[in-house]
C-alpha cells in the first residue's frame, strides 16, 4: 500500500475499526518510521482523548480505588522487596498518612502492615506530584557503573523529595551507600542505605537544605554508618544535563 492509502486508514487504526489485514498493513508501514504518518497518528490519538474528555464526567465509587490497590498488592509478589524502607530522617506521621491508615484500616489481613507502608508512600508521592513546585531530577550512573540510574521527585519549597535508585551494585561487607545533597559545592549527608537484591532503593527526604536553585545529588560508597563528607567512589550524580537532539 502507498503512503496515501495508509494515511486513509489511520482514523480506523486509532479507533480499532479496521479489519485484521488492514491493521497489519498499517503496522508494517509504521515500522518503516514514516514520520508523516506517526505525526498524524499522534494527532488522532490526542483527538481521541479529547473526545473522551467531551463526555459528561463522573467519578467511580471510592470502593473501586480500594479494590484496585488491594488487588495490585496481591499481584506484586515479585516487587515486594523492591523498595526497602530505610528512611533515616525523622518522619512524623503526616495527616495524609493518618487518613490513609484509617482508610485502609478495614483490611485486616496479614499484608496489612505492608499495605500501610505502601499507602503512606503513595500519599507522599502523590502529594509531591500535586504540588506546583514539583520538579524531577535524573541521576546518572558513573563509570564503571553506567547502568545505574535514579530519579528524584522534589518539592523545593517544602524541602521534600523522594529519591528512587536502580541497578546499583550490592555493597561489600562493612560498606554502605551514602546520599549527598550538594548546595554551592557543599555536600550535606542525606543518610546511608543499602540496596535490595535487584539493586534498587527508595529514600524519602523531609528536610532538604536550602530553597533557591536546584540542588545536585551524589551517591558515594562509604564505610558503614557514613562519613561527614564524601570520601569514597561515586556511583550516581545528578541532575543530568538535558541531551541535545
Amino acid at each position: 500500500m502507498t503512503h496515501e492509502q495508509i494515511r486513509s486508514l489511520l482514523e480506523g487504526y486509532v479507533f480499532g475499526s479496521l479489519d485484521e489485514n488492514e491493521q497489519k498493513q498499517v503496522d508494517a508501514h509504521l515500522q518503516t518510521v514514516c514520520r508523516d504518518c506517526r505525526t498524524e497518528l499522534q494527532d488522532l490519538y490526542e483527538l481521541s482523548v479529547k473526545l473522551a474528555q467531551s463526555l459528561p464526567q463522573s467519578d467511580p465509587s471510592p470502593q473501586l480505588r480500594e479494590n484496585l490497590l488491594a488487588q495490585a498488592a496481591r499481584k506484586s509478589v515479585k516487587s515486594s522487596h523492591r523498595f526497602p524502607r530505610r528512611v533515616w530522617l525523622p518522619t512524623s506521621v503526616s495527616a495524609a498518612a493518618a487518613v490513609a491508615l484509617f482508610f485502609w484500616g478495614f483490611l485486616l489481613h496479614k499484608e496489612n502492615q505492608k499495605l500501610r507502608q505502601r499507602l503512606s508512600e503513595a500519599e507522599d508521592v502523590s502529594s509531591l506530584l500535586r504540588s506546583p513546585g514539583m520538579q524531577f531530577v535524573d541521576l546518572k550512573g558513573v563509570d564503571p557503573n553506567p547502568q545505574a540510574f535514579g530519579k528524584v521527585v522534589l518539592d523545593r519549597q517544602r524541602g521534600k523529595a523522594v529519591v528512587y535508585m536502580y541497578r546499583l551494585p550490592q555493597t561489600p561487607q562493612g560498606k554502605q551507600y551514602q546520599l549527598w545533597v550538594m548546595r554551592e559545592g557543599k555536600p550535606t549527608s542525606a543518610g546511608v542505605f543499602t540496596v535490595a537484591p535487584d539493586g534498587s532503593a527508595a529514600l524519602k527526604l523531609d528536610r532538604l537544605p536550602g530553597t533557591d536553585g536546584l540542588p545536585s545529588f551524589l551517591v558515594t560508597i562509604e564505610p558503614e554508618g557514613g562519613e561527614a563528607a564524601p570520601t569514597g567512589m561515586m556511583y550516581l550524580t545528578g541532575p543530568v544535563p538535558p541531551e541535545k537532539n
Binding site: 490497590l69 506484586s76 523492591r82 505502601r118 536502580y166
Partner: peptide
C-alpha cells in the same frame, strides 16, 4: 518497576 504508590497516583 512495581511501585504501587505510582499506580495510586
Amino acid at each position: 518497576e512495581g511501585n504501587q504508590a505510582a499506580l495510586a497516583s
